[in-house]
Design a protein around this nucleic acid. Structure first.
Lengths: 217, 217
DNA sequence: TAGATTGTTAATCGATTAACAATC
DNA sequence: TAGATTGTTAATCGATTAACAATC
C-alpha cells in the first residue's frame, strides 16, 4: 500500500508512454491496454503496468486504460500541466535547429530566450527571437524565472556556461556538448551525444572494411 | 577465462570511455586509471574495470592504463578503425545542423549523402554536399555500400523512410523522429528525443506554477 | 455471470559494487 | 621489495518478468 519511490528508469519511460498515448489519440482511439502500448514501444505489458503502478492505478480492470485520462495523468505526474520557459544557449547550427523545432511546445516547453557570445550573431533573428548577448544570461534567467536550459555551445565552453546557468538558478540542463557536466546534486542533466550513439551501434556492424564496392574475393 | 558476451549496456559505455580518453590525450596525459576515469564520468572505478574486462585486459597492474593504447583498443573494439560513410535523410533545420556538425568525422563517421523529397530543397547546397532527391536513396546507398543512416524527417514520414532504408541495406539508424521504429532484428536503432529528455527532467522540478515573477504570498 | 485486463506480489534475471588475490 | 592498481569472483542490489488474485 505504501508506494515505493519510483525509480528514475521508470520515470524516464513515462514520456514514451505519453508519446504513444498522443499517437493513439490522433488515431481517434479512446481506450488502450498495456498489451497494445507494449507492442508499440517494444516493452512488456508487465513493465508498463509496473511503471504506472508507482504513481497510482489509472486503468479499469478488464477494460484497459482510457487514452485521454491516462494522458492527462501522465502530464500531471511529469509536471507538464504548465508550459516551462526554456533558455537556449548557443546560436550555431544546432541552436538554429532547436529554436525552430516544433515539438517543444506540444511537449510542454517553450524556448523564450536564445543566447550567444559571438558579436556577429547577437541581435540577429532566430526563430521567433533575437539572439541575446550571453552577458545577459543571468539577468534574463532570473527575471523570467527560467529553470530549464538547453546547452548547445562548443565543448570547450560547456562547463563554464553550465556553471553560470547553475549559479543563475537553472535546475535542469539538456546538454548537447559531449562532456559529463559537473553540477550540484539538485540540478538534473541529460546528455545528447549522437556520435556516442553511432559508436554504440558501430560495435554491432560488420567490421569488414573493404568489400561492398563490387564483391571481389 | 571464457569471456561472457558483453552486455549491450556495457558496450554503450565504451564511447564514453573513448571520450574521456580523448580528453586526457588533449591534456597531454599519457596514463590514467579506473579511479580517475570514473570520477570524470560519474561512474565507479569497479564498473569501468568490469566493462573493459569483457573485451580483454588493457591495463598494467599497479600502473593503470596507457591512454593512447586504451584509446586505440576501444576504437578497434567499436569498429572505428575505419571511417563509416553515413546517409542523412532530411534536409530541414535539423538536417542542416547535422550536416555541419564537426564531431562525426573525429568519431569515425562521415556524412556522404543528404536526401530530401522536397523539390525546393533538392539540388541546394548543404555543408559540403548538394541535397539529393530522396528517390535516389536506394541507388546511392547500395552503390556506396552505406550501412548507417541518420533519420531527420518529420514524424509522419519516419517509418516509411526507415522501411526503405532497411530494404536498401542499412543496418544502423540514428532516429531523430519521436517514434519507435519497427525494423528487423539485425538492424540497430538509436533514438534521440530531446522532448522526452526534457519531460524526464521536468518530473523532478518544483511543480509550483506561479511565484517567481516577484514573490507575493 | 463470464471474460478480460488490471495492479501487485513473488521469482527471476541481470547489472553494479565490494573485496581481494594477482602481479607489475 | 613495498606500493599500487588491475582483473575477476562473489555478494549485493535493483529491475524485469511471470503469475495470479482482484475486480470491473
Amino acid at each position: 500500500m505504501v508506494k515505493r519511490k519510483a525509480p528514475d528508469i521508470a520515470v524516464g519511460r513515462l514520456p514514451l508512454y505519453l508519446r504513444v498515448l498522443n499517437q493513439l489519440l490522433e488515431e481517434g482511439r479512446t481506450t488502450t491496454n498495456s498489451q497494445e502500448m507494449g507492442t508499440r514501444l517494444g516493452l512488456s505489458p508487465a513493465q508498463i503496468r509496473k511503471d504506472l503502478s508507482y504513481f497510482g492505478g489509472f486503468g479499469r480492470f478488464g477494460a484497459g486504460y482510457d487514452v485521454a485520462y491516462l494522458c492527462e495523468q501522465l502530464r500531471r505526474i511529469l509536471n507538464l500541466e504548465r508550459t516551462w520557459p526554456v533558455a537556449l544557449v548557443g546560436a550555431g547550427h544546432l541552436g538554429h535547429a532547436l529554436a525552430n523545432y516544433g515539438r517543444f511546445s506540444e511537449g510542454g516547453f517553450e524556448i523564450v530566450a536564445v543566447f550567444d557570445d559571438d558579436p556577429s550573431k547577437i541581435g540577429s533573428p532566430l526563430g521567433r527571437h533575437q539572439v541575446l548577448d550571453a552577458a545577459q544570461l543571468e539577468r534574463v534567467i532570473q527575471e523570467q524565472g527560467i529553470v530549464i536550459a538547453i546547452l548547445a555551445v562548443p565543448l570547450q565552453a560547456a562547463q563554464a556556461v553550465a556553471d553560470r546557468l547553475v549559479a543563475a538558478g537553472i535546475k535542469a540542463i539538456l546538454n548537447y556538448a559531449p562532456v559529463r557536466l559537473k553540477v550540484p546534486n539538485d540540478v538534473k542533466v541529460q546528455e545528447i551525444d549522437p556520435v556516442a550513439r553511432l559508436q554504440h551501434m558501430a560495435y554491432y556492424l560488420e567490421a569488414d572494411d573493404a568489400a561492398m564496392d563490387d564483391g571481389e574475393a
